[in-house]
């Protein structure tokens, strides 16, 4: 069985799917990614599907699962590079890819992750301030 390589670039894990995956390969990728998120502490995952000429319900479900798993592990997933014909087919198939962020290419995907991370740390600062305010109010 082939394995899809997972590359680490800075704070991001990049997966570029270049082969017509067997279902087992897709499942292995899901596990590999979960492991790599934990071992690297990366906060972003980009899955480049430029090389895929179809996304069926199995691969669609794998993409949704990866997004959910990485979210639980404090990482955000962006799927990039979907071909127009694939998008048209996915919608007609009835797959909505709920909860998956998408961008047109890897570069835009990285920007999206950077913005999401920045927004999240702003929220975090706000939470800290509120906590500080709360604790000073109670003697």
């Amino acid at each position: 069985m082939e394995r899809v390589p997972v590359l680490k670039i800075g704070d991001i894990l990049l997966v570029s799917i270049q082969v017509d995956m067997q279902d087992q390969t897709a499942l292995a990728l899901q596990e590999d990614l979960a492991d790599r998120i934990v071992t690297t502490g990366c906060h972003g995952v980009i899955i480049d599907i430029t090389g895929l000429d179809i996304v069926d319900s199995f691969v669609g479900r794998m993409l949704s699962s990866i997004a959910s798993i990485s979210r639980v592990l404090d990482a955000e997933t962006v799927v990039v590079g979907m071909r127009p014909a694939v998008a048209i087919t996915l919608v007609e198939l009835g797959l909505s890819l709920d909860g998956i962020r998408t961008a047109l290419n890897v570069e835009l995907g990285m920007e999206l992750l950077a913005r999401a991370r920045a927004a999240e740390s702003d929220d975090f600062d706000l939470d800290l301030d509120l906590d500080g305010f709360g604790s000073s109010a109670t003697p």
Partner: peptide
């Protein structure tokens, strides 16, 4: 996919047929 290209199905129709075939084969 090979036969869909040879039969000159449009790219969208190729994609739809290969996707349907993938679902049904599974």
């Amino acid at each position: 996919r090979t036969l869909a290209v040879a039969t000159k199905l449009s790219l969208v129709d190729q994609t739809k047929l290969v996707t349907a075939a993938s679902e049904l084969a599974r």
